[in-house]
């Protein structure tokens, strides 16, 4: 679905991305992980064309991402960020259907799609007429997810979608997300900083450090055959942290 070739992005003197090569298969679920500031969000923004790389290029479904067709290409992708990024002056319903309305979908079609999405995300009907400030964090994320899925895109990009939630809700939503991914059969790219979450949700884990990809594969491979000492340290740090909290390994 995505082919990235030698993507480099510089902010001032610092390199946010440094020669990224990555191929993301159609229908796969990929988790991007790495220490904060390593370039995960930047990479996700490159995928949806919010920023353009200084060097290299991105192919989406065989086509280059280009300014002239970027809007049409974005409508084939859904994008969810931490805190949802919802429009505060619109109700949950208005947030979700905004783009469909603009594309002149019939109200029947909108209604049907909305019902499907509410069922999928377990969003209560009573919440539809509420504004984001009147909803809980978890519900906001469900609205964000519904908005991203409204046009039934082929790709779903999520940037730490559960990052701002408290642990109980987070755990619940991880389960739900996994189910949703299984139901939908879409190409999913997910950013997280939690290795367990990455392993739970992603078939492929891409571990990044300072703008480069260090290793990609399954968690098992990383434990068995770390590509460099950093992988070992990263895995150990995350696991011991969990052991200390008594969550087991």
């Amino acid at each position: 679905m995505f082919e990235l070739d030698r993507i480099t992005k510089r902010y001032g003197s610092s390199l946010a991305l440094d020669g990224i090569r990555l191929s993301i298969a159609r229908g796969s679920t990929t988790a991007l992980i790495g220490p904060s500031g390593c370039g995960k969000s930047t990479l996700l923004r490159i995928l949806i064309g919010l920023i353009e790389p200084d060097v290299g290029h991105v192919r989406f479904d065989g086509q280059m991402l280009e300014r002239t067709r970027i809007r049409a290409q974005r409508q084939r992708m859904g994008y969810v960020i931490q805190q949802g990024g919802l429009f505060p002056h619109l109700t949950a319903r208005e947030n979700v259907v905004l783009m469909a309305r603009l594309l002149k979908w019939s109200s029947d079609r909108i209604k049907t799609r909305l019902s499907e999405l509410m069922e999928l995300t377990h969003f209560p009907r009573a919440g539809l007429e509420r504004y984001p400030t009147e909803l809980s964090g978890g519900q906001n994320q469900r609205v964000g997810l519904m908005r991203a899925l409204m046009l039934d895109p082929e790709v779903l990009l999520l940037d730490e979608p559960l990052g701002a939630l408290d642990p109980m809700i987070r755990y619940e939503l991880q389960e739900e997300l996994k189910q949703i991914f299984a139901t939908l059969d879409k190409t999913v790219v997910l950013v997280t900083h939690d290795l367990a979450e990455a392993a739970f949700l992603g078939e492929t884990i891409v571990l990044m450090r300072a703008g480069r990809i260090v290793q990609s594969g399954s968690l098992d491979e990383m434990i068995r055959a770390p590509a460099e000492p950093f992988v070992e340290r990263f895995v150990r740090a995350q696991r011991s942290h969990r052991v200390a909290l008594g969550e087991g390994a």
């Binding site: 919010l50 970027i70 974005r74 905004l98 783009m99």
Partner: peptide
């Protein structure tokens, strides 16, 4: 983040100005 969401949705510039 709000502006980015609007852009990521694929809203044209005019609609972004008017609606968001």
């Amino acid at each position: 983040a709000t502006i980015e969401s609007a852009e990521a949705l694929g809203l044209p510039a005019g609609a972004r100005l008017r609606l968001i």
